Computed example of a mutant assay.
Amino acid sequence: MTGGAGFVGGHVVASLVATGARVRVLDDFSTGSMDNLCHARTLGLADADIRAVDIAALEGQQEIRDWRPSVVVHLAANAAFARSIRDPYLDARINVLGTIGVLAAAASCGAEKVVLASSGGTVYGELPAGAARLAEDAPRTPVSPYGLSKLTADRYAELYRELFGLPHTALALANVYGPGQDPGAGVVAATARAVATGRRPLIYGDGRQTRDFVHVSDVAEAFRRAVNAPPCATVNIGTGIETRIADVVAEVCRCFGVPTTPRYAPERPGEVTRICLDNRRAAELLGWRPTVGLVEGIAGVVDTLRAPEPAGA
């Protein structure tokens, strides 16, 4: 698995190891952490199967060829939207060239399939006015470098299927959140960290933008099912529920028991106004449905950040 030491990757590794799979983690640890692999290691992930390599470099691709896995799970990516705006070259190197290298290595070593993370929050672009959800056959018109690089990676996976017979499943993830997420990677984590450290949360734009928030434990289960299911091209992994950013911020503040007094900053370029994914295909092909509601999931994030009670209190 590439990117296995990341926020999502660590949960996916643990989910697979728990079912008896042998997993080898490839990660350059530029954003990943051994902390994200603690649970997987207690379940049996061997230290020898954790390799610090760059999958966009030849050494990372050679690791895949040497190991000859039956399934390649590809999660390594630049997942930072803002970073893609600042440095689209780096974003493309990781998300496009890295994916090409992984696909080439998987095809050359005879892998049965590749399961890769796509971005349901960016590859489709704007949810059309009047539409409730985006299905997998919706037009794809990304409006950010990150969305474009993830769409390009998806297209390469499709080409490798057509040209080299390498099957794949691309899970188009909605906005993933959960305990342990980097505060720079999502509004739930950023807001919770701000409130936990006594700062006012920040909202870009007016807060009426909407997202489809899916818990990381549900995402890990989707990957586990995709690894064990027949390849099925693109599958949306989201809740099908559209939630305003301002409402998420308010719920985090409510869980902490503090007033909702956000700061506002100009809307960031390249962000869409509305996102919501149709998840019926995931139910049909993977037997997957989300199980963690947003209120419950936010409470779990807050619980991990809440300061402990002083001794004797």
Results as ranks from 00 to 15, higher is better:
48 A>N: 10
253 C>N: 11
66 D>G: 07
302 V>H: 06
117 A>L: 02
281 R>V: 02
6 G>I: 02
251 E>Q: 10
135 A>R: 15
161 R>I: 03
72 V>A: 07
122 T>L: 09
168 H>Q: 05
135 A>M: 04
177 Y>P: 06
98 G>N: 06
46 A>G: 11
210 T>M: 04
251 E>H: 10
104 A>W: 10
213 F>K: 08
199 R>Y: 08
169 T>I: 01
16 L>D: 09
152 T>Y: 13
260 T>D: 15
217 S>G: 09
109 C>Y: 10
248 V>R: 06
294 L>F: 00
117 A>H: 02
285 L>I: 01
126 E>K: 04
119 S>C: 07
309 E>S: 04
241 I>H: 15
250 A>V: 01
76 A>H: 09
50 I>T: 11
293 G>M: 04
182 D>T: 07
171 L>D: 00
54 D>L: 09
189 A>Y: 13
82 A>P: 10
14 A>T: 01
234 T>P: 01
185 A>H: 08
32 G>L: 05
18 A>T: 06
161 R>L: 12
10 G>Y: 08
203 I>Y: 13
190 A>R: 13
299 A>N: 09
74 H>T: 08
143 V>F: 09
11 H>M: 03
78 N>L: 09
39 H>L: 10
285 L>C: 03
258 V>T: 14
310 P>G: 03
157 A>T: 06
209 Q>G: 12
307 A>G: 02
245 I>Y: 13
232 C>P: 08
94 I>W: 05
169 T>G: 01
35 D>N: 14
233 A>D: 12
70 S>T: 14
240 G>W: 00
183 P>T: 00
275 I>W: 04
153 A>L: 04
26 L>V: 06
204 Y>T: 09
134 L>P: 10
236 N>E: 00
253 C>I: 11
242 E>Q: 12
51 R>L: 15
293 G>L: 07
214 V>W: 01
164 F>M: 08
95 N>T: 04
224 R>H: 12
23 V>D: 09
77 A>Q: 08
211 R>C: 05
117 A>N: 01
186 G>W: 08
237 I>H: 02
120 G>L: 01
31 T>P: 07
194 A>I: 05
103 L>G: 05
299 A>S: 14
267 E>M: 15
15 S>N: 11
139 P>D: 15
97 L>C: 11
91 D>S: 10
165 G>I: 05
272 V>C: 10
252 V>R: 11
208 R>Y: 11
226 A>C: 05
186 G>I: 05
42 T>L: 14
124 Y>M: 02
255 C>S: 13
214 V>S: 03
179 P>Q: 03
228 N>M: 08
83 R>K: 10
16 L>R: 07
298 I>T: 02
181 Q>M: 12
233 A>Q: 03
236 N>I: 00
297 G>M: 14
49 D>Y: 09
61 Q>A: 14
243 T>K: 05
289 R>F: 06
84 S>I: 00
285 L>P: 00
309 E>R: 00
196 A>G: 15
308 P>I: 01
53 V>D: 00
260 T>H: 14
264 Y>Q: 02
105 A>Q: 04
218 D>M: 03
